[in-house]
């Protein structure tokens, strides 16, 4: 069980959350300008990093906010969490 620190509600058990995959993958501003390869890269390619990983979570059963969690994918240690407001 992961105790996930919602930036708003504090630490909650993982079954209150939905995982949203790797963070920091912005949607291309002009998709039509991309080659098929570039679009596929945005669509499908993920780093699947071993160790420090920035990922999106949503506090589905709580405040419904999406936020970014930094997690070590080897130890499952959670290194921090930030709201989208913080990072922009």
């Amino acid at each position: 069980m992961l105790l996930i620190p919602c930036p708003w509600c504090g630490p909650r058990e993982d079954d209150e959350f939905t995982f949203g995959g790797e963070a920091d993958i912005p949607r291309p501003a002009d998709p039509d300008a991309l080659t098929d390869e570039q679009w596929a890269d945005y669509l499908f390619m993920r780093d699947n990093r071993r160790g420090h990983h920035r990922e999106q979570w949503c506090h589905t059963a709580g405040c419904r906010r999406w936020f970014v969690v930094e997690r070590d994918t080897v130890t499952n240690e959670i290194l921090g969490a930030s709201t989208y407001g913080d990072s922009q």
Partner: peptide, 17 residues
């Protein structure tokens, strides 16, 4: 019902702020 709401919120909150 729930997945669509979560999907829409994700775009609003993370991309189209």
């Amino acid at each position: 019902a729930a997945p669509v709401l979560a999907w829409l919120e994700q775009w609003l909150q993370t991309e189209w702020t």
